[in-house]
Amino acid sequence: MTLLQAEHLTVNRGGQEILSDVCVSFEATGSTAIIGPNGAGKSTLLKSLAGVLTPTAGRVLFGGKDIAGLSGAARARAIGYLPQQFQPYWDLSVADLVRLGAERGQKKSGGDIDSIVAGFELTNMSKRRWSTLSGGEGSRVLLAMVLASDPSVLLADEPGASLDVRHRIALVQGLLRRSSKSASIVVMHDLDLAFRFFDRILLLNGRRIVADAPPRELIDDRCLDEAFGIQFERLETAHGPLLRAI
């Protein structure tokens, strides 16, 4: 069943077209990686799907309803958007940050924040302030904030781009853990992880989707080389095929 759908999305900013007539739909479960060169429109597509950016033309449907017609509260609870960069201005504690995520879009406060914090295995750092967290800890807290309201879609923009490979893998696995019961759509720069962990790959280039296929099918397609403006060598490894730039 289709949960999230973009219809003829076009986004202009400062007289420039960033996305051009993009149509795509996502099921209620499964994981999708959005890949493509810089400036292809990946982040803009993700923000439009999340409803934090209003498209110039076209619309986004969530559960068949125009997302622009949803209240901010309803949208915020149903859709988890994890931005590329996050730097809170006030030095809040981990528990307070998770609380803001868990209570978003709700009038009432309360609820058992401790058990939510425990669910993300953050109990031992719940009283620490944001400024004391390492990069890996910070990205786990951010993910917990976004997932704390148990959204039916997670949209993540290059999570863990600045992390070392072990933490990046742990983070990607963390956000895909829910993809058996909800949808995860993730902008990925790391092609290795994109082809290894995701069910479906969207390739964006020049403001459009140029390929939409499972990783096994896409990996041999020459459109990858064309999109990134580079030649890839396809290597067979024990863990599946691997792309290497040459």
Binding site: K47, A50, V52, S71, G72, A73, A74, R75, A76, R77, I79, G80, Y81, P83, Q85, F86, Q87, P88, Y89, W90, L92, L97, L100, G101, E103, R104, G105, V146
Partner: peptide, 20 residues
């Protein structure tokens, strides 16, 4: 109060968390 907390997360995060 709650809106001020959210806007302290940055405008994009605040928007994602439902604040206009």
């Amino acid at each position: 109060a709650r809106g001020l907390d959210l806007i302290g997360l940055g405008e994009i995060m605040a928007t994602g968390f439902g604040l206009s």
